[in-house]
Design a binder for these strands. Structure first.
Lengths: 193, 193, 193, 193
DNA sequence: GATGAATGAGCCTTCATTCAT
DNA sequence: TATGAATGAAGGCTCATTCAT
């Protein structure tokens, strides 16, 4: 006991980190099946931990959702500059990047919906996602606008919201192809002739 | 006869109808603020009636939602052929009609969301809304496609879903203009050059 | 209107009586199917009247139940002396009479149960039934006891309660024959050898 | 290991078990006063717990009822063979055992009634009670019949139902002595001379 | 008198969140 | 720290009973 106060920290950390990982995996799975508002207990059960443990690691549901998707958001953000560098035109980069964003959202049952919830508890979530991605999108949009490939009167924030919205409910309606509709929207960005 | 009031069998209806009206108004208001899944009690309270009264008039939530929006759905449906007749081109008619649909949805917090719920209890709702509007939209879309004004590979159902989705959350985000984004989507329907 | 205050009374009476008859018939039918605690509205619906009409005629449920079975209780009561006069022995009269009582109860879904409810609202019901039948039973029991055919230490009230209890639930359990069990009980009344 | 507490995995159970006991006691008391269909809240209140706690321990009402009476049912079942071994005659054993069963039922307001409910939700309850006791009774009955002490044409199930019925309402009617009436019924089992 | 609309208490059940162990 | 038991607010729904028409 007394021996621990100093050197145990890394050990605990290892323990806790493993637990946190299990939680994130479990949450991700449950989210896919039952949406990001799935009962806390379901997540705890699947992770094999108590509900209290979830609250310890993620005080609010927003914290959990943020954590679950952090890596993917990060990867998406990082893809922006890369695509800009490797694509033929800024517009192509924008289109590809949007497509990637759609990939991300479409498999996250309920994520798109909660992303646009006005529930106060989700402010942190909105911030986390949009703050990270909007600037990336803005840079792509600006580049395309600068190249005259798209109209220049649209904010990145608005575009991302729109893409997010178009992805809502896409996973459980075979007659609705979110990717395709987002494609139409992006096509609509072209300057009118 | 005995009462001497003649053939006024739908008498009590005066009362009930007034009450039903109050209920529909209250529900519409509550729906705007808290979505179409707002607690029955809240609606009852705002209408100044007991909860039982809601169940008497609208046995299921779907019944209530349908009733709340029936008139607007009907008006929207009827506007389709009219616009087709009065517009310069089928595309203009389509664009106008979509705009009208947006008008309808934008103030209905949560309506778009429930419209795409897969909950079995909402079947009647889907039928009532989509069955009525999709054919109207299809006719406009077909006309525009026949005139070569839009691509011909999109179903009306999918388009309406997309428009519906783009309207989600529009009312409480000043940085997001659903009408405008729908405009971009409709612009994207143009055949590629 | 003015013309009515006097001579209409008999007319109303005819009307009301017809209505009351419809109510009693409807209640009897519903009671058979759903027990004597069936929803008031079900009875009103089957009778083709409003719920208010039931309350006008029968302020409490006990009043309704009493009225529904009044004739049969009366007939049962009157059968007592008749059986005593026509049977070979007082015991035979008692056995027959009890059997008749069982006939009455067994087809009244839930009646036996409510007869022994301790709900304060059923006091009038208990009084109505037991006050009328217990003396009849007592006379038969006394006669049999006087003839030395049964033990003399049992009250009629207690016997009737027992018979009533044995009839509870008889109608919906094919493995339980209330009549037969009552027969065993009555056999048990015989003085021990 | 890490916590150094050794193999105390069933630790929290101390707490929960105490609580469960309180629940069972409370339920038993409430059942006596208001029947086994008493509101969940009443039971929770008397136990001094939240309603959720009841649902945690006993997901269905049948589970709760079964648990409340499990020990007594078991004890009653085990008394059968013992009485058969220790009594002078099988009939005496049967009579004693029935008496014991009456002891059990007489204070359980509503139990007898629910035991004979045909509600699907009570299947587990029926199984738990009747499946356990009917065979015990059958053995006693058979032994007595084999000894020529009682008639042999009655099923144990029917007898137990009858005894159960005779016990209904016994606790709150000073003029009705269930034990005595059951005695008469059992006396009626004797073969007719 | 009759009607049935309205009321609202009352019950069940779920689940986020806290907290003793 | 981790656990999961306990809590209790919420919300859905039913029905006895009242009362305006």
């Amino acid at each position: 006991m007394g021996a621990g106060m100093g050197g145990q920290s890394p050990r605990r950390r290892a323990d806790a980190r493993r637990n946190e990982k299990a939680l994130l995996d479990a949450a991700a799975e449950v989210f896919v099946g039952a949406g990001v508002n799935a009962p806390v207990r379901d997540i705890a059960t699947r992770a094999g931990v108590g509900t209290g443990t979830i609250y310890r690691h993620f005080p609010t549901r927003a914290d959990l959702i943020i954590a679950v998707y952090r890596h993917q958001v990060e990867a998406c953000a990082e893809a922006g500059p890369a695509l800009l560098a490797s694509s033929d035109t800024p517009y192509a980069a924008l289109a590809h990047w949007i497509d990637r964003f759609v990939d991300f959202l479409v498999t996250k049952h309920g994520l798109a919906a909660v992303l646009r919830s006005d529930d106060a508890g989700f402010d942190a979530l909105h911030a986390s996602f949009l703050d990270r991605l909007v600037p990336v999108c803005a840079r792509l949009l600006d580049a395309a606008a600068a190249a005259g490939e798209v109209r220049s009167d649209l904010e990145a924030y608005e575009l991302m919201r729109a893409v997010g919205n178009l992805c809502i409910g896409a996973e459980d309606d075979p007659r609705y192809d979110a990717r395709r509709l987002v494609g139409l929207l992006v096509a609509g960005l072209r300057p009118s002739p």
